[in-house]
Amino acid sequence: MAAVLLADKITHVYPSEPGRHILRDVSMQVEQGEFAVIVGRSGSGKSTLLQVLGTMEPLQAGALWLCGTEVTQLKDDGLARFRLQNLGFVFQSFHLIDSLTAVENVRLPMELARLPRRNALTRASELLDLVGLSQRSRAFPSQLSGGEQQRVAIARALANRPAMILADEPTGNLDREAADVVLGVFEDLHKHQQVTIVLVTHDTAICDRADTVWRMEDGVLSLARSIARQ
C-alpha cells in the first residue's frame, strides 16, 4: 500500500523559545486509506506536528513527503496549491467563513481550484448530503450549531477530493453528542470512501475508531497501536 504521508526526523523549535524543542526527530508514515490518530496531552506538540504535516508551519529539520512529493522543495504559493489539491483541513474552531452560507463554504476550495461552477455546486450539495446537512445548505455559520459547523468544515475539507484529511481536535469544541456525530462522519469517510485521515486529539476514546494510534509526549512521537489493514 502506498504511503500518503512519510515524515522523517522532523524537528521543530519556535523562534520565540529557541531552547525548547516542540518536535524531536519525529518520524511517521500514513498509508492510503488509513485512519491515524495522534493523542497527547495539551502542549505535547501534537497540533504543531499537524501544522507541520499540513505544510502550514515551515519545516525546519527533517524531511516530509506527502503524496509522493517532497514538500520541502515547494515555495509558499506552491505549498498553497499543493494543499488545495491534496489536503483537507478540519480545525477545532471550525474556521468557516461567516459571510458565506454552508454550501458556499463547501464550494470555496473548488472555486479556488477553478472547478466549473455547475460541477462545484453539484459536488458541494453531495458533500453536504454526505455529512447529513443537505437541509441546512443555505444557513450561515452563525445559524448552525457547533456540530453542524464542524460537519460543514468536513465537507469543505473533502471538496477537492484530497488525498488526506488533517483534523486538529475536531471535537474539542463540541459536546459529547455532537462529537459522536462528527466522529461518525469521519468513520464513515474512512470505511466507505477510503479517505486517509490524520486526526489529532487529546480524547483517547477516539482511539478505538482508528487504525493506528500515535502518542505524542514532549515532542517525541511513538507508535502506540496499529491494526493490520486489509
Binding site: 461567516d98 470555496l108 481550484a113 475539507a157
Partner: peptide, 16 residues
C-alpha cells in the same frame, strides 16, 4: 485575518 488564514490553509495562493 482568521478568514484569510483559513483560505491560505485550504489552498488559496498569496496572489488570490
Amino acid at each position: 485575518v482568521g478568514e484569510f488564514a483559513t483560505l491560505r490553509a485550504i489552498g488559496a495562493t498569496k496572489g488570490r
